[in-house]
Design a protein around this nucleic acid. Structure first.
Lengths: 243, 243
DNA sequence: CGATGGGTTGACTGCACTCAACCAAGGTGG
DNA sequence: CCACCTTGGTTGAGTGCAGTCAACCCATCG
């Protein structure tokens, strides 16, 4: 059976009430599925996009490359996300996408998406909504990296990822798969790798969480949330109530 | 004559080839126009949006407020922008909007927008595209505030604002109206006010630009661009025909 | 095996934050 | 009218946090 379509339907349904006609449109989309190795790029800055990517499993990252050679991660995506819906209406990608750990990604021709949008405006609106959620997460990242001290900043990132993973039912118990290195954390949060390590040690010391073997373990969600100044309103997840 | 409609049409036309039917739809929209004083809020974090804002003249800012009381500016908008198109499909605003200097804003009921979207998908796509440009600017802000040193960071912001203002024909000669205070610059770039002042002094010293009496003056565009590591690709300012 | 990548830790340094004082301009009220 | 206050900008001194640099460990892998 086709996991890609189901993952997309599940994710869109999380935020939007899809009608049966919308589901029919989605199931009719052509998906070309591919597996990627950790850190493998699949869309590069400068590419002319004509397909949209859907994360089927694993995680993918979006990033900027600066002339200085520095890399800045912009955000992360989990199963069900459309990480480059952002590319639907632009001529040229302004950022790249790569697998974080091993990941499976499905590609949908833009042409088909547009046709479906015209037939089913509700489907278009639901994807549009996804892109707006993305933007909301970007805004929070601006604030996080600009206005919050190191420890809070890192805790906030973990909170967000955990919260989103839970909404996507990717959390088993109190842990989920987060195959990120310290260097990548640094390039996400705008801090040097040594600082990443020390800050992470502090967070571990607080007993609220741990990060081991590519797994994030949340031990005291409430405390971690407080530590990270985390309020999930900006994620606009309909299911608001969580333990 | 109605400036609001014309400003919107001009801005959308900048990026999208609008058909005559789209223009008819836009002209049929109901606008409620209002003037705001500098720093006056007109949409607050937590509001339930049911109208979309359009900047008719002046500048408006988007910002987060943290529990700590700190304010983080997320971005700025000029005439023709739809600063809260982001609110079209969300239940609750995750950020606020305020006038930067004195500003005139027009409000359009969401209901009318949605109806127009269904009748004219191309119009919907053009507004969608605007929201994606917004997101692209947010991404750049993440990178700017996280990965670039202070001086470069500030120069980059000025480059972006100048470039966008020029595209919107708001630059007269080599200057345009940018009514921003040092404190606000600090809350945009994530730096303390003292540092803002010193960094700005450096930039002035470089002879590439000046900021006086609420006006940004660009003296050496090329040098400022280089100083700010600025490449305008991410602004996607190019007319593109839509599907 | 040696090479590589990821993680850990210590020492040093310097940049940007904090704090504080001060100035200029504009608005307000007695 | 002046006195006062507020807001925005400017500058100096001191400090501390996080960046840089370097060494080292460990596991994996060719």
């Amino acid at each position: 059976m086709d996991k890609a379509h189901e993952v997309l339907i599940r994710n869109l349904s999380e935020h939007t009430a899809l009608g049966p006609e919308d589901v029919v449109e989605i199931r009719a989309l052509t998906f070309i599925q591919r597996d990627f190795a950790p850190s493998e790029d699949f869309i590069r800055q400068g590419d002319v996009p004509n397909v949209a990517a859907l994360v089927v499993s694993g995680m993918v990252a979006r990033y900027h490359l600066l002339d200085s050679g520095r890399r800045q991660y912009l955000g992360f995506h989990i199963a069900g996300d459309l990480p480059d819906a952002q590319g639907l209406f632009i001529d040229q990608m302004d950022h790249g996408l790569s697998a974080l750990g091993p990941a499976t990604v499905a590609f949908i021709p833009h042409r088909e998406m547009f046709a479906a949008f015209r037939r089913q405006p509700t489907f278009a609106f639901s994807v549009w909504r996804e892109t707006l959620l993305d933007a909301s997460i970007f805004r929070e990242a601006i604030t996080n990296n600009s206005a919050r001290p190191m420890q809070v900043r890192m805790a906030h990132l973990f909170c967000e990822l955990f919260y989103r993973a839970r909404a996507a039912q990717l959390v088993r118990g109190n842990r989920f798969h987060l195959p990120i290195s310290l260097a990548q954390l640094g390039e996400t949060l705008g801090m040097a790798i040594a600082t990443v390590n020390r800050t992470l040690a502090e967070l571990r010391g607080s007993g609220t969480m741990d990060l081991r073997e590519g797994e994030l373990i949340v031990l005291k969600w409430r405390d971690l949330q407080r530590l990270g100044d985390f309020t999930p309103a900006y994620l606009h997840l309909k299911r608001q109530s969580l333990p």
